[in-house]
């Protein structure tokens, strides 16, 4: 019984890692051609937030930091805030789902909203430091990315739920309840 659960956990973790990696690669290779008002959604964050509900806390924390490093390495230049942002995002989602909301989807969407707003604020700071106006930054970059990312989060959520229903073997936070 123990061995079977370990195998399922390994498969589940590997699939989660592959899912996040796929999202990161899609974000930098496919979505640049599927822009919404010139913006690309942060589907890596969307995937991590969804996984934060179903995946083990430790795994999802490590995964978020690694995803941040990967995305910084393959897709961005300059200042990197992704490792910290993603770690914060999964923590927010975990807190929301464990403390505030019983509804998982609501937790995911609220965490996504907070994350993407934070990401928008960071984007605005960098864009405005380059001389862009606040209005242009908000309407041209922050708002479309926020909407697009939220839509993508809603689309990723059922996939993660399916993943959990197939490979789910234990509930979140059980580790600390033991």
């Amino acid at each position: 019984m123990y061995g079977k659960n370990t195998a399922r956990t390994v498969i589940r973790t590997v699939l989660s890692c592959l899912g996040v990696l796929t999202c990161a690669l899609l974000q930098v290779s496919v979505f640049p051609y599927l822009r919404f008002f010139g913006c690309i959604p942060d589907i890596t964050a969307a995937c991590l937030i969804c996984l934060a509900l179903f995946e083990n806390e430790k795994t999802v924390c490590v995964l978020s930091v690694c995803a941040g490093v990967v995305l910084h390495s393959i897709g961005t230049r300059g200042v990197s805030y992704y490792p910290l942002l993603y770690l914060a995002a999964v923590c927010v989602c975990m807190v929301l789902s464990n403390v505030f909301f019983k509804n998982r989807f609501l937790s995911v969407m609220t965490a996504a909203l907070i994350t993407f707003v934070a990401e928008g604020v960071l984007t605005s700071i960098f864009l405005m430091s380059d001389g862009a106006s606040y209005a242009d930054t908000f309407t041209g970059a922050v708002l479309p990315q926020l909407v697009y990312s939220l839509v993508c989060t809603a689309a990723v959520y059922p996939i993660c739920r399916l993943h959990d229903s197939v490979f789910g073997i234990r509930r979140k936070a059980d580790y600390y309840e033991e």
């Binding site: 930091v65 941040g68 910084h72 300059g78 200042v79 990197s80 805030y81 992704y82 490792p83 910290l84």
Partner: peptide, 15 residues
């Protein structure tokens, strides 16, 4: 801490 260190190192090297 690792995330913070990575953020600082990666940003500094990229800059």
């Amino acid at each position: 801490c690792i995330a913070m260190v990575l953020t600082v190192i990666l940003s500094a090297l990229a800059a």
